[in-house]
């Protein structure tokens, strides 16, 4: 029964991706144009600086990790907001299968689509800008899958809040741009910066892309931070979502937009 729920949610994600194909294409074009602007702008400003090549590689990785972050967290939060606006949210809630599981299935489906979409784009962007990024499939998937959990946790928190406080789109937009800071800036040894969602995954991804690091090359401390941060955000996401879900069911505001 749960397998059916899981598969049908993944299937819906694929259908919507196909149906919004032209939207997706224009989204890709915007992403690339925006990327080239940042890339060539920075290159023009700091091109003569020693080791600037490393910075450029870092920017490529950071940019696409940011993209992964926003598509993941927005996928969850906008997903809930849109469904509430359309009127389908209550229909999904009225299913005998708990909404959390429906959400989980959708997240996994969207995640697979996002990975299939963002990773090739990242290597394409590097190729067209004349950079070569290190590539290790296992490390890449490991970092993306674990790292993105924190983004999904953030998405669940926002989605939950949206069930009660309906006007949060400006906050989502603020977070979209604000999150550039913690995915693109090198956190160094600051625990605080590394504990930002996806910051640690971005940091490790840069190590992989720039220096060819693989899973085994990272310190245990790095792995602990990666897992710990993701677990905390995901856990908080579930708790916050459940809290607001319960509040919405008490107030009867699941579909009120």
């Amino acid at each position: 029964m749960l397998l059916t729920v899981f598969l049908v949610n993944v299937w819906k994600g694929i259908i919507e991706f196909k149906r919004y194909f032209f939207n997706s294409i224009s989204f890709v074009a915007t992403i690339l144009i925006f990327f080239y602007l940042i890339f060539f702008g920075l290159k023009a400003v700091g091109g003569g600086t020693p080791n600037f090549g490393d910075t450029l590689d870092g920017i490529i990785v950071g940019y696409f990790m940011w993209l992964m972050f926003i598509t993941s967290f927005q996928g969850v939060s906008w997903g809930i907001i849109e469904e509430a606006q359309r009127g389908t949210l209550e229909q999904v809630f009225a299913s005998p299968v708990p909404f959390e599981f429906q959400l989980f299935s959708r997240i996994v489906g969207d995640l697979l689509l996002n990975i299939a979409f963002v990773v090739p784009l990242m290597y394409f962007a590097a190729f067209t800008t004349g950079r070569t990024l290190g590539f290790n499939l296992v490390t890449l998937l490991y970092l993306l899958l674990i790292g993105v959990l924190s983004a999904l946790g953030v998405g669940m928190m926002i989605g939950g809040v949206a069930l009660i406080f309906k006007r949060i789109s400006s906050f989502v937009e603020m977070l979209t741009f604000g999150s550039m800071a913690f995915t693109m800036i090198d956190p160094g040894n600051s625990i605080l910066l590394r504990s930002m969602p996806m910051a640690q995954a971005s940091f490790m991804m840069r190590q992989m892309a720039q220096h060819g690091a693989t899973i085994g090359d990272f310190k245990m401390f790095d792995h602990v931070i990666l897992w710990g941060v993701s677990a905390i955000y995901m856990g908080l996401g579930v708790i916050v979502f459940r809290f607001f879900e319960h509040r919405a069911m008490l107030k009867g505001t699941l579909n009120q937009y």
């Binding site: 029964m1 059916t4 049908v8 259908i15 389908t88």
Partner: peptide, 21 residues
């Protein structure tokens, strides 16, 4: 409003049955 407007009737039936298991 209970339907996904960007999906077909047949897809809606398959989906809404699916989420009930």
């Amino acid at each position: 409003r209970n339907l996904y407007w960007r999906m077909t009737p047949v897809e809606n039936i398959i989906y809404f049955c699916g989420i009930r298991g």
